[in-house]
Simulated assay, not measured.
Amino acid sequence: MTTDTADDPRPTFARALDQAGRQVAAVGPDELGNRTPCADYDVRALLGHVVAVLHKLARVGVGEDARGIPDVIGGIADDGWASAFTRARSEVDRVWADDERLDRMVQLPWATLPGRTALDVYTHEFTVHSWDLAHATRRLAGLDPDLAEQALDAFSKLAPPEDRSERGPFSAVVTASDDADVYTRLAAYLGRRP
């Protein structure tokens, strides 16, 4: 079975992972303790989170339960994050190369969705976390604005302000200036304070 490229989330997902991978690779050991705009995460914890998400996506892609994988993976050497991300990403790429996985239902820790929808949602998560890392390490230049536009559009449907609570992953919308770039508007929409 061949997937219609117009309905295939993998190319955009790959762009989001490429961007995240560049941010991960740029982090130096002296930046691991920097605070990020993502609540409760310093750079080390956020790196542990993005690697954990990749492990979860690989596991659900083959029909296994991902709930046993922690939200933040630890135990990675200070200079080992880029290789940990690359290895986990290679596994995700291998698992999700199969077109049939796109239409299978996958059990995520927070929902059961078709594979293509799950990849689309995680495209936007990796886009936001790329900005989180870029903000925390002062490497904002070069982020893909098209990914942020898509994420802002998706999150306006997935996480409307009226559906948020204090215990959810997104805080109340923060006001952004009218001339703010798209990543600043995205961060503000998700409750981060850019």
Rank of each mutant, 00 (worst) to 15 (best):
R185C: 00
T137S: 09
S83P: 00
R116C: 03
E100M: 03
A187L: 01
R89L: 13
Y41S: 03
E91G: 02
A82F: 08
H49T: 15
T123R: 15
R87Q: 11
Q19C: 04
I76V: 15
E31P: 01
E91L: 09
D163V: 03
I76P: 01
P161N: 08
V106F: 02
K56M: 14
A154L: 11
L57R: 06
V50R: 08
S165H: 05
G115D: 03
L17R: 15
R15L: 13
D78Y: 14
D103M: 04
G191M: 05
A148H: 13
E64W: 02
G168D: 02
F170N: 01
R59D: 03
F155L: 14
H55C: 09
R67V: 05
T184I: 08
Q150G: 11
Y122V: 06
A16G: 10
D7A: 13
K157G: 08
R101Q: 09
S83R: 15
M105P: 00
T112Y: 01
I69C: 06
T36I: 07
P194A: 14
R116D: 08
A159I: 07
Y41G: 02
L152R: 14
F170P: 00
D146I: 02
V95I: 15
A88F: 07
D181Y: 03
G168W: 00
A176W: 10
A77P: 08
N34R: 10
L152Q: 04
H129D: 03
G115K: 04
G33L: 06
P114S: 11
P160C: 09
G63N: 04
L108E: 04
V60A: 04
D65G: 02
A25H: 13
A6V: 00
R94W: 04
D78P: 06
T2G: 06
S171Y: 01
D178A: 14
T127W: 15
L47C: 06
L158Y: 15
D8Y: 05
G80L: 09
D71F: 11
V53R: 09
A159Q: 03
D71T: 12
P194M: 12
V173W: 05
R167K: 09
P145M: 04
R87A: 11
L102Q: 04
A134N: 11
A52L: 10
G80K: 10
P160D: 10
W110Q: 04
F85I: 06
R167H: 03
E64R: 15
S90D: 14
G115Y: 06
F155H: 11
A77L: 03
Y122W: 15
P161A: 09
H55N: 12
D120Q: 13
R101N: 04
V27H: 00
L190K: 12
G28A: 15
P29K: 08
T112D: 07
R192N: 05
V121K: 11
R193M: 06
T123F: 05
R15Q: 12
D120T: 13
V174L: 03
D99N: 15
D79I: 06
Q150K: 08
L46F: 13
D144S: 06
D98V: 11
